[in-house]
Each structure stands twice: as structure tokens, then as C-alpha cells.
Amino acid sequence: MQQKPVVALTLGDPAGIGAELIARLLAQAEACQRANIVLVGDAWLWREGLRVAGVDVPTEAVTSVAAVRTRADTSRPAWLAMDTVRPEQVTVGQAGAAGGASVLRVLNACMDAARDGHIDAICFAPLNKFAMKQGGLKHDDELHHFAQYLGVTGTFCEFNTLGDLWTSRVSSHIPLKDAAAALSVDRIKAATRLIYRSLQANGIAQPRVAVAAFNPHGGDGGTCGREEIDIIEPAVRQLNQEGLPIAGPFPADTIFLKAQAGEFQAIVTMYHDQGQIAIKLLGFSRGVTVQGGLPIPITTPAHGTAYDIAGQGRANVDATWQAFLIACRMGASMGASHRASLV
């Protein structure tokens, strides 16, 4: 029988709905059937999550993540307590520096464990970028922090997923006026290869991947922009020559209709909102963000901290469950060789 992957779960921003979500996730017996789980975070925050969710989840205390992989009984989560933030430093429903610093400390501890080969994947409850920047984040977003911390030098990208549909993008958190200049044959090829291989790690042997156009109507033969002719089409041709069955480019206003009909499992978009708007309209409460291109799978629900409903017992666990399942599949698939590359 294949050993279950070791998946670290974190409680997210202490002012948001993260602890409640993780409590609801772990209250489902199936969770521990999927993975050898280690929960990492502050004890008071975990207790508050259980109280808000109205559930009880037995755990097994451990003193280090190193002890998790060799546990004989994985029917309940391992629990690694950290002291990163005090209750009086947190105001429920409000971003704060103390909460952001707490998130950074917990995530860094999990990445240290990944580097040492003790865990196979991380699934983190929602965080708040503003709070994290107040608390010491030096990058624009958590993905760039992960990549630097883990020593990634190659291509990395945030994937957004909804059920069987994944999206990646060639440019991300930049002004829209700079999106055209960010396009290149090499960047499109790198983004496409990355999502193709990531889908394979998620259990799809031959992913069906399409590439979006950049201009309205796909450029209308060059009369409405030449990015398709000069950049995107050559990138797709070269990918096909490499043996990857990539399709496109397709106009952005119809490509998601094709995906919704089941023609494609992934879409490579050219800039942030080109894919984000479609994915969030299709299912905001079920979306998952996957940090692509890292040597360990890192996933999170895409909906954010939901400060407006924090502490009210109303959080929907569906996206967190999907993020956890992806972490389990990719953690099992990527294997020891990927963990060893971190050392």
C-alpha cells in the first residue's frame, strides 16, 4: 500500500476565517484517510476555530514535524503548536501586522520542514497580503516569497483552479498597461509547460491545454494587434514541435466556453484578469490557488480571508477541501526526488 503523503495544514490569518475552515476540514473523517496530516499553528487560534465551527477534532501532539512521517497511526491529525501571536494582538475582521507576521512564521516553518524532506505538501488557510506586508513580507505576494525561500530559479506561476479546469498566466501582478510588453515566446512556452506538467502531477496523464489570445477577436488577422501573429502562434507551434499537444490561440471571450464544455482542462492566459474574472464567475466559493513551479505543492482556497464573516460560523469549507485534495494528489505524485532537490 502506498504511503500517504505528509500534508501540512496552517490556520491562516488569525483575524479571518482560516481556523474555522481548517476545523471544518478536519472534522471530516475522510481528510485523514487522504493524508498523514500535521496541523501547524497557535493553540489558542486552533481552539477558537473549533469553537466557531462547533466541532471537536482529536489530535496527536508532536514536538517536531520530523516525527510525523513515521507515525504508526495517522487516523487523526498530528498537532505542532507554535507561539506566533497573542489573542490580544488580533482584532477579528481586521488586517494587522501581528497577524501577518504570524502567517509568515508558520509558513516559513512549514517550508523549512519541506526543505528537510519531512512534508510533501502544504495547504494554507487564507492569508491577507496587506497584513503580511505590515508584518514583514518583502515581496509583492506570497508566491514570490515562497520561490525565494525555497531557492527557485526557474519559472513559477500562480495557477487558479475550479474543479477540473486550471488556468495559468504569462504575466500576473503588474499594471495592465505593461501586459503587452510582458509577452514573449519564451514566457508563453514556460507558462504552458509548467501547467502541463503540473496537471500531470495532479494525476492527468495527457492534459488538454489551450492558449488564449491577447487582443480582441484574436487580433483579427493583425488588424487589431499583432501579438497573436508575432508571439503567441509561434510559441504554440514550438510547443507542438516539442510534442506537447497545445491548442490555440483562441479569443479570450470564447475560450472559457470551450473549457466549460469540456474541450480543455487548462487555459494559459496572457494577463491576470483575463482568467481570474472567468474563474471567479464560474465558481468563486470553490476556487483554489496552486503555487506552481515550486519543488513542493502549496495550495490554498482562492476566496481570501472573508473578514466580513470572520467569527460568525458561516465559512464555506468547499474550496479549502478542494485545495487539500490537490495538495494530497500532488504531494503523493511529486515524490522524494522533488523533496531531495530542496536540500
Rank of each mutant, 00 (worst) to 15 (best):
Gln134Ala: 15
Ala29Phe: 04
Thr320Ser: 12
Gly203His: 05
Asn215Cys: 03
Pro234Thr: 07
Asp42Trp: 02
Gly221His: 01
Gly203Arg: 08
Val106His: 02
Cys123Met: 13
Ser285Phe: 04
Phe214Ala: 03
Thr161Pro: 02
Ala181Thr: 13
Trp44Glu: 01
Ala72Leu: 13
Leu244Tyr: 13
Thr167Gln: 01
Ala235Glu: 00
Thr300Phe: 11
His338Trp: 14
Ile17Asp: 02
Gln2Ser: 14
Gly335Arg: 11
Ala340Trp: 07
Gln265Lys: 12
Arg286Phe: 06
Gly151Leu: 04
Glu60Met: 11
Ala147His: 06
Gly135Tyr: 05
Glu30Thr: 04
Asn108Trp: 13
Ala266Arg: 02
Ser337Phe: 13
Ala98Tyr: 03
Asp42His: 04
Arg193Phe: 05
His145Ile: 08
Thr84Trp: 03
Leu11Glu: 09
Gly96Thr: 06
Val103Phe: 10
Ser341Lys: 10
Pro297Glu: 05
Ala306Ser: 09
Val90Asn: 00
Arg169Val: 03
Pro87Ile: 08
Ala27Arg: 03
Ala190Leu: 09
Tyr271Asp: 06
Gly313Leu: 07
Ala8Phe: 05
Pro295Tyr: 03
Gly275Leu: 01
Gln89Glu: 15
Gln28Glu: 13
Ser184His: 04
Ala180Ser: 13
Gly304Ala: 07
Val290Gln: 11
Gly16Val: 05
Ala323Arg: 05
Thr305Tyr: 10
Ser184Asn: 02
Leu137Trp: 03
